[in-house]
């Protein structure tokens, strides 16, 4: 049976994620155990709350190491919401930048719109060849966030001895108010969504199935 670990570091609506995955007949474990997190077929990094607090929580249980170890071995990782944001270089949530994992080049900034948080079901623009968005390109997904990455580019990860090789970068965008931001990101084994697939009904389930199909 395909196994997925939902990384438990004290942040996130982890129960919802566990249930959405279990509904797809996967062996799902909620844990921060490194060995289990490394050995599972897939690792989900949830995240709800503030960028800085999430990053601190993740590091306190060695989650940063686990994520990079997996990616180095080419093993799939899916970051969701703030779990997506921390994959970028910096979070600008409290003025000064908090360093993220630096796996994607770009900063996480406050949305520019009349109503913030961006809360609810929104459409996205998926790129050609997207693995995650296959078959759900025209669907709406559930977002709830005030910050987002306004740009994305391959980061220099050589300091982490991490080589994505010639894996192509595919970015899905969303426009809200005056902001155009990263809604989903994929490059090799690294996958991330700003929206919540576990709360996005059928479209979300299909996206999770698409991710699982890469294992």
């Amino acid at each position: 049976m395909t196994s997925v670990v939902v990384f438990d570091y004290g942040f996130g609506n982890v129960r919802s994620m566990v249930r959405a995955l279990a509904d797809l007949d996967l062996d799902v474990t909620l844990t921060s155990d490194h060995r289990q997190a490394l050995e599972a077929n897939g690792l989900v990094v949830p995240g709800v709350g503030a960028f800085g607090a999430c990053m601190e929580g993740l590091k306190s249980v060695g989650g940063d190491t686990v994520i990079k170890d997996r990616l180095r071995a080419g093993r799939p990782v899916l970051g969701v919401c703030v779990g997506e944001q921390i994959m970028f270089e910096r979070g600008m949530e409290h003025g000064t930048g908090t360093p993220g994992l630096g796996l994607i080049k770009g900063d996480v900034e406050l949305l520019d719109a009349d109503v913030v948080p961006h809360m609810g079901w929104d459409t996205v623009e998926a790129p050609e060849g997207s693995v995650l968005m296959k078959g759900v390109e025209g669907e709406r997904f559930y977002f709830v966030h005030s910050f987002a990455a306004m740009s994305a580019a391959p980061a220099d990860t050589s300091g982490d001895q991490l080589d994505f090789g010639d894996a192509e970068e595919r970015v899905t965008w969303c426009t809200y108010g005056r902001s155009r931001f990263v809604a989903a990101y994929e490059r090799g084994p690294l996958f991330a969504t700003q929206f919540h697939p576990e709360k996005s009904a059928e479209a979300g389930s299909q996206l999770l199935r698409n991710w699982i199909a890469t294992f």
């Binding site: 249930r19 559930y142 709830v144 919540h196 709360k199 979300g204 389930s205």
Partner: peptide
Amino acid sequence: TAEQIFIP
């Protein structure tokens, strides 16, 4: 409820 309903 959360076991069968995948909306917020």
